[in-house]
Design a protein around this nucleic acid. Structure first.
Lengths: 220, 220
DNA sequence: GAAAAATTTGGACAGTTGTCAAGAATTTGC
DNA sequence: GCAAATTCTTGACAACTGTCCAAATTTTTC
C-alpha cells in the first residue's frame, strides 16, 4: 500500500530527505488519480450521478474495480476528484474568445460559435454539471467544490459581458449574478433541447443570445 | 388486484355501464395514488432522487413497502405521479400576487415577499425540482413531464414581469426565455445559499430582484 | 537478477435495491 | 352476516451497491 506513504509525504513534504524519488511517486500517484477521474467523468456524464456505480466506472476504464479503492479512499473522494478535473476543463472555455475580440460584433460572433460548439460537443459533460450541482443541494460534502466552480463560471460570463460592453462603449447594466443566471439558464434550456433531439436548440440559443447581449449594455 | 381493472376502466370509461360505483373506485384509487405521491415527495425532497429508495418512501408513509407496487406499476410510475402532483403545487405560486397588484411598486413588493416565503418554507421541495430537472437530462421518461412544468414556470414568470411592466407603463425588453432564465437562476443561487446556512441569501435575492426588475421594462 | 515495494486482480462481505407473490386483513355488495 | 372483492403485510428473490482483503502481478531498488 503506497497510499498512506504518499499521503504522508504530501503533508510532510518538507521533512522528507530523499526528495526526488518521493516527489516522483507522488506525481505518479496523482497522475493516476486524474487518469481514473477522467474515465469516471465519462461514465458519470453518460449515466448520471444516480445511476453510476464504482463497478461501472471501473468497467469503462482499463482497470478492475478494486483499483479504485487503491487510489481513492471512497466514492466521495473519487467524485470530488472528478469535479476538480472538470473545473480545469470548463472554466477557461471562453478565455480566448475574450482576448482575441477586436470589436463588439466580432466578440458576439465568436461567443455564439463557442456556445454552440461546447453545447453540441460536450453535452453529456454539461448535463453532468447540472446533475452534480443539484446533488450539492443534498450532500454538503459536494457544496464547497461545486460552489467554487459556480463562481468561476460566473467570472467567465462576466469577462465576456464586460469585454463586450467595453467594446460597445458602455458597461453592463445587470449585476454579475444576474448576467450569469440569464446565460446559464438559456444554455441549460438549449442543452435540454439538444439532448432530447430538438435540432433547432442551438439556433434558438444563438438567436436568444444575439438578441440579449446588446440589450445589456448601458448607453455610454 | 384492482390495479388492472381500474386501469381498464380509466381507458374505457365510456363503455362501462355501471358508472357510479366504478367511477368511485377509480377516484378512490387515484386519491390513494396522490396520497402516496405526497408522502413520496416529502422523502424525495429530504434525501434527493439518487438517495431515495421505495422502501424509504414507504417507511415515511403509513404503509408497508409492498403497497407501493399495488398502486404504482414501478418506480418510474411513482416518480411521474410525484412530478404531476408537484406541478399542481408550484405553478400558481404567484398568481394572486399578480391579480392583486395595484401598482408596479406594490407588485414588486409582493413578488419579493412571496419569493422569500417560498424559498425559506419550501426549500427542500425546490431543490428536488432542480434535482429532477437534472435527472430528466439522463432519463428520457422524465423529460416530457418536467419540460411541461418548466414551460408553466416560464409562463408564471412571464405573467409577473408582463404585469409589472404594464403597471410601469411599458413592456418587457427581454424574451420570455431570458426572463425565466434570469429569475430562475437567481432563485437557484439563493436556494443554494439558504440551504447551506447563508442567512443573507434571502436578502441578497430580494436586493438582486429589486435591482433587476425595473431595468427590464422598456421606456413607454 | 534477487529482494522489496508498488500496483492490480478478483473474490468475498454485509447491506440495499426493485420487484414479485402468497396470504392475512379489511372493506364492499348483497 | 356471509361471500367476494379490495387492500395491505410480510417475506422472499436475484441483482447490485460500497468496501475490504489476500494473493497475484508488475515495477522499482540495489
Amino acid at each position: 500500500m503506497q497510499t498512506l506513504d504518499v499521503r504522508a509525504s504530501l503533508e510532510n513534504l518538507e521533512r522528507v530527505e530523499a526528495r526526488a524519488p518521493t516527489q516522483e511517486a507522488v506525481d505518479k500517484f496523482a497522475r493516476k488519480r486524474i487518469e481514473l477521474a477522467k474515465a469516471a467523468l465519462e461514465t458519470l456524464a453518460t449515466l448520471g450521478y444516480a445511476n453510476t456505480s464504482l463497478r461501472e466506472i471501473a468497467q469503462h476504464s482499463q482497470y478492475s474495480h478494486g483499483v479504485l479503492h487503491y487510489y481513492f479512499s471512497d466514492k466521495l473522494d473519487l467524485i470530488t476528484c472528478c469535479v476538480s478535473y472538470y473545473k480545469s476543463i470548463c472554466v477557461t472555455r471562453y478565455d480566448d474568445v475574450v482576448v482575441e475580440a477586436s470589436s463588439a460584433d466580432a466578440l458576439l460572433d465568436a461567443f455564439c460559435d463557442r456556445l454552440v460548439e461546447t453545447l453540441e460537443r460536450e453535452a453529456p459533460l454539461h448535463r453532468l454539471w447540472y446533475d452534480l450541482r443539484a446533488q450539492s443541494l443534498f450532500e454538503d460534502a459536494f457544496h464547497e467544490d461545486i460552489s467554487i466552480i459556480d463562481r468561476k463560471l460566473e467570472d467567465m460570463v462576466w469577462r465576456v459581458c464586460n469585454t463586450y460592453c467595453g467594446l460597445a462603449g458602455g458597461h453592463p447594466t445587470l449585476s454579475r449574478a444576474s448576467l450569469y443566471a440569464v446565460f446559464d439558464g438559456l444554455f441549460q434550456r438549449a442543452l435540454s433541447g439538444y439532448i432530447h433531439g430538438d435540432t433547432g436548440a442551438s439556433g434558438q440559443l444563438v438567436k436568444e443570445v444575439r438578441d440579449l447581449l446588446p440589450k445589456l449594455v448601458s448607453a455610454a
